[in-house]
């Protein structure tokens, strides 16, 4: 019979100061702290009682919650989606739009309509449940300074009309739409990390937030970093938080990302190839649950879903109009029957 390994105290989430005090006092594993009370510990380490309490609390944590896939299936079916107002875009995302409870990353070169899409979602998340919406509030984290309130008002007006709102109280309704978008302007990567780390408190005060848009995640992380390992760690730490928000509050997290050029070296120095890939490097590619790339093709905007645990890889067309995101006006259906080659191996 194997003896279960003992858990080192370093695997608890403690402040460095407490950790070294525990170490100096001779505590090495959680078993050593088995019968120690918070009062005795506070006295022995010479720290305030609340700090000792935090140590003891971590040892008596809650039991782990697991759900069966059957329960998860029921939960997934109950989840709401946020429509983009482009039928093709929605169907690419599984039928009714950007899913809540998931992290969706949207990558695209400048001018593809990432910000437009973000603003459209901020408005659409507020559509009442009776009209097929999520009836929630939105958080918009703007790192690039591209959020234009007049434009949001325009989109909100169009949305209000399309769900059948009457004309007389249009102005109040549009104002109300705007009042339910919480806007944060971020000027540096430290600010960005600080905001994400404090988001839990904000979400506690605003439990009805169903959408978080970050436009863009990459902006402050593409310069001023000499230690790329540090950048990767910070980004992955943030990604953990996004996934937690999505799951705990059942909200949709939408991350906008920029594109960058990758030079692939060929056999000789003269046949290097350049491809456009999402920014922030290889490990960031794992951060999101769904990843969508926006690109131009024959003067039409296209969106392609490239990563998803439950959706098929496919490409669709969409348009950006005065009213917001819509299907392209020409009834030019996406070529959905390419040449097929049967698999024989």
């Amino acid at each position: 019979m194997l003896v279960p390994p003992l858990r080192p105290l370093a695997t608890l989430n403690l402040e460095p100061n407490i950790r070294s005090r525990l170490h100096n006092a001779g505590y090495r594993t959680t078993a050593d702290l088995g019968n120690v009370t918070a009062e005795a510990l506070a006295q022995e380490l010479g720290v305030p009682l609340h700090q000792a309490n935090s140590v003891v609390q971590q040892l008596n944590k809650d039991t782990v919650v697991s759900i069966s896939a059957l329960e998860a299936l029921a939960r997934e079916r109950r989840r709401l989606s946020i429509s983009t107002f482009s039928k093709a875009f929605d169907s690419m995302l599984g039928g009714s739009g950007v899913p809540t409870g998931r992290v969706t990353e949207i990558c695209g070169a400048p001018g593809m309509g990432k910000t437009q899409l973000g603003m459209q979602l901020c408005v659409n998340v507020q559509i009442p449940i009776s009209c097929g919406g999520a009836e929630g509030e939105a958080i918009y984290i703007d790192t690039e300074g591209s959020f234009v309130v007049e434009r949001v008002a325009e989109i909100a007006r169009a949305t209000y009309r399309s769900v059948g709102g009457s004309e007389e109280n249009e102005k109040e309704q549009v104002d109300e739409y705007l009042s339910r978008i919480h806007y944060f302007r971020i000027h540096g990567y430290l600010e960005q990390i600080a905001l994400i780390n404090q988001m839990d408190q904000f979400l506690k005060k605003h439990p009805n937030v169903k959408l978080m848009v970050i436009d863009s995640i990459a902006f402050h992380f593409r310069q001023n970093f000499t230690d790329m390992g540090l950048r990767t760690r910070l980004l992955n730490g943030m990604a953990q938080n996004f996934r937690r928000f999505a799951d705990m509050s059942d909200m949709a997290v939408v991350l906008m990302n920029q594109m960058t050029t990758r030079i692939t070296r060929g056999e000789q120095s003269n046949n290097n190839t350049a491809t456009l890939v999402p920014a922030l490097g290889d490990s960031w590619g794992h951060a999101s649950t769904n990843r969508i790339i926006l690109f131009w093709q024959r003067e039409l905007r296209h969106a392609m879903i490239v990563k998803s645990p439950n959706l098929q890889q496919r490409t669709i067309q969409y348009a950006v109009t005065g009213d917001g995101i819509r299907d392209p006006p020409t009834t030019n259906p996406t070529p959905n029957n390419p040449r097929k080659r049967p698999l024989d191996e």
Binding site: N13, A69, L73, R244
Partner: peptide, 20 residues
């Protein structure tokens, strides 16, 4: 139903809770 009820999922968002 039989298949899905025999798969259980635990969500986990940081390394500390993974050890827990």
């Amino acid at each position: 139903k039989n298949i899905l009820s025999r798969v259980r999922c635990i969500p986990c968002f940081d390394a500390f809770s993974l050890v827990d």
